[in-house]
């Protein structure tokens, strides 16, 4: 049990998918202007990533490996990811129409979020088991949500601050993202190697 907790901690904080591995930067910059939309986007992505890591593991071990067609990995994964995203979109549209409006184009764009494809591929590379894969997927997406919400909070503060004209808008956001990444590098000492 403690092993899984450690895994969760290390994927969410130490090897954060956005700030340490630099995957999934598009929604990180794109949808972090408001805290609540950032949280919703994070939750939607968490749902998608957790499902796709599980689905990808099953596809890898029950379909690609027995048939010896691992070279079709990326194609198969993308197919599964697209289906899960489409499904998520339908559910959100039905359950929370307001959220559907707010997320807008970024919802289908989860498909092209490289973290969603990257995590299953990393799992294959690490030859993880099913439970570990699932945990890595879940932990990473929790880390993604965490960073997204943190960054949105920072940007809400920056929106109120006086920023010199040269840095106003996107530049200061990029600088903030850099500082946040630096801060996350500090977590590297959290888990003994």
């Amino acid at each position: 049990m403690s092993e899984y907790l450690l895994l969760l901690l290390s994927t969410a904080l130490v090897n954060n998918v956005v700030l340490v591995k630099f995957l999934g930067l598009c929604p990180f910059m794109g949808i972090s202007k408001k805290m609540d939309t950032a949280l919703s986007m994070g939750l939607a992505t968490t749902f998608v990533i957790t499902f796709t890591t599980a689905g990808a593991w099953l596809l890898e071990h029950w379909l690609l490996m027995p048939l010896g067609i691992q070279y079709l990995r990326i194609l198969t994964y993308i197919l599964a990811i697209a289906a899960v995203v489409q499904f998520t979109e339908m559910v959100i549209r039905k359950v929370a129409p307001a959220l559907y409006q707010v997320l807008g184009i970024y919802l289908p764009l989860i498909t092209t979020n490289c973290a969603v494809l990257g995590l299953p591929l990393l799992n294959v590379q690490e030859k993880s088991g099913f439970a570990v894969s699932l945990m890595v997927g879940f932990g990473s997406s929790v880390g993604f949500t965490l960073v997204l919400v943190l960054f949105a909070g920072l940007r809400e503060r920056i929106a109120l601050a006086t920023v010199s004209a040269t840095f106003a808008g996107a530049p200061i956001a990029f600088i903030t993202a850099g500082l946040l990444a630096l801060a996350f590098m500090g977590f590297a000492g959290l888990v003994p190697h």
Binding site: L59, L63, L67, I69, L72, L75, T76, L79, A80, A83, Q86, F87, M90, V91, R93, K94, P97
Partner: peptide, 23 residues
């Protein structure tokens, strides 16, 4: 065949979901 079957199955699931979650 495996990719075709995968596509068809996922398509079916999405088709059913589109009916169930129809707005």
């Amino acid at each position: 065949t495996s990719l075709t079957i995968l596509g068809v199955v996922l398509g079916l699931i999405l088709g059913v979901a589109a009916r169930v979650f129809r707005v």
